[in-house]
Design a protein around this nucleic acid. Sequence first.
DNA 1: CAACCTTGCTCAATCGATGAAGCAGAATTG
DNA 2: CAATTCTGCTTCATCGATTGAGCAAGGTTG
Lengths: 348, 348
Amino acid sequence: MNQDRPTKKVTIYDLAELAGTSASAVSAVLNGNWKKRRISSQLAEKITRLAEEQGYAINMQASLLRREKSKIIGMIVPKYDNRYFGSIVETFETMARERGLFPIITCTRRDPELEVEAARTMLSYQVEWLVSTGATDPDRISDLCGAAGVGSLNLDLPGTKAPSIISDNFTGARELTRRILVNSERKLGAARPLLFIGGRGSDHNTAERVRGFRAAHADIGVPIDESHILTCGYAPEKAETSLQALARAEGDLPSGMFVNSTISLEGVMRWIKRSGHYTNHTPVMGCFDWDPFAALLGDQIEMVRQDVQGMLTAVFEVIDHGAKGASLIEIPPIFVDYDDTLVNDPTA
Amino acid sequence: MNQDRPTKKVTIYDLAELAGTSASAVSAVLNGNWKKRRISSQLAEKITRLAEEQGYAINMQASLLRREKSKIIGMIVPKYDNRYFGSIVETFETMARERGLFPIITCTRRDPELEVEAARTMLSYQVEWLVSTGATDPDRISDLCGAAGVGSLNLDLPGTKAPSIISDNFTGARELTRRILVNSERKLGAARPLLFIGGRGSDHNTAERVRGFRAAHADIGVPIDESHILTCGYAPEKAETSLQALARAEGDLPSGMFVNSTISLEGVMRWIKRSGHYTNHTPVMGCFDWDPFAALLGDQIEMVRQDVQGMLTAVFEVIDHGAKGASLIEIPPIFVDYDDTLVNDPTA
DNA sequence: CAACCTTGCTCAATCGATGAAGCAGAATTG
DNA sequence: CAATTCTGCTTCATCGATTGAGCAAGGTTG
């Protein structure tokens, strides 16, 4: 392939010299608009062959510098440690590529400073769009993008300065709670009030889910114990600590619970196993988010699966066709049945 | 911040004009080597302030075009759907950033064509290094990189044309098998031969794990049934189908199993639940890979956790200090105890 | 056969940042 | 006070690809 020792990168100038032609002809041929530029197919073929032989790869930095559009699209994501975000990233990459966009993704580990720094870096790389997923301060990022004339979008958690695509948390949580209460009735003979655990009280999603949780209890006239709403954060350890404290304070624990994420569920399940509570009667459970193994745990855990495909379709809808202002698009989540068949939210 | 309507991007020329100075002074100030270039701290301050005010962001395309080093490092990863790869990506990003490198990651969904295309694209973006994780054809990628004078590295699955960092699959599998057999003895009164399921027989890791599996049986003189080595692929469905076929053929199933990945374990657990086999005696199980929920499933599943931190430390060791040829670096995996404390491989 | 068109290219400016080379003016030295 | 050094900048070529403008040779038309 390449004969020189310290393999220098081949440029269009090298190819031009080899082909006995000009760099602009090579450029025209290699980026496909040689017909427009009236290059003979003979020369085109020769150049194409040479490029192949020499293992030519375009220098994107140079190309993008000259062009007006970068076709780069950025995404900021908090973690890679659960199926939800993993699926978001994978779907995002696929859909971006389908549109001829180059996705760059960066994980900011729920660190506000890192989020901003990552956004800045992406702007330096000339992204055309920036999608902030589950960002702690999405508006700050929208401001940065706005100043640079770059489009921004919020996914999973809403902001006020860019279109936001999120799950319909209220309806999802209400239906999930309803299902847990039904199971409670079936198994324990009565729909007893549930415990809510996980998430940050300050974040929009958690607030909406708590609202749905309340609504479902109200729907069947079951009162809620306010001290049983534990929005202690997402980390597994927080959930553990929180349950431990409640158990110590009250001695007994609610017979069922609504867990606000698989990450929190990790802590809940660990605590149940370690603490020895619930040894004779596993609690009736539900989780807002889906995980294949968690689905097999315990007696039957109800799960809502957020519609990642639907959410990203909405994201690219906005990117492809625009959206009015800081609109809020809510996507109904999906319920997962015993047999793993996905069922659309019947309440939507 | 910005006053013009269609927010054009601010360049060093704009800043130079505003500051009444030259672009090269601005450049020198903003990239920090203004001391070397003898710019007065007065001017430096003025430029810095202006850059701040105008929301200046460097154009990386232009900067990188001029520089010799891009400081971009690429990674190709097959999936984001399990903790192992998620953790690899997250750790990779963190360690890259610690070194002032800009990580770009792309998911190729185990598609050989996509792998090659992704590698080409990364080369166009002038990556300095490319890490192929679990690639189906790592040598092809190493060739591409080699031709472009770019360093490449294999992670998780080894290749022959670049340094490879993988888990010590043989030792790990042998110890995992030993542990499952010990549990078998404890629970069933005897160490009965196990079933091996999941993975591709053609891939290095699976082959090594099968070798470790055999060795552990041989160590205690228990014979293996060759028809119980089911390297049926990684996908959950493949594991399900495979078990179903075996159950139909033999009626009875082995009392314990070695599952080759959490992805395969997903299928195994689903099949166990659906098929109704093992209803009175859950099998003694072990899994090569770790998942927090899977760890809580069943009676106690032994898990090996691959040492992601250790593997990536080795990756960056090679990047920072170089490695001789296509060396193979094997990192001992970690065993996870009941109580979730991590224990180093005692056999290492 | 002059005027014009078509074909198939080449030239040169450009994108934004970088840094070697150079150039005034002030400060220091002998 | 002439020679030298130092300070604080500016000028300009450059990285590789893109693209509008232009040009020469051949073909067509009236």
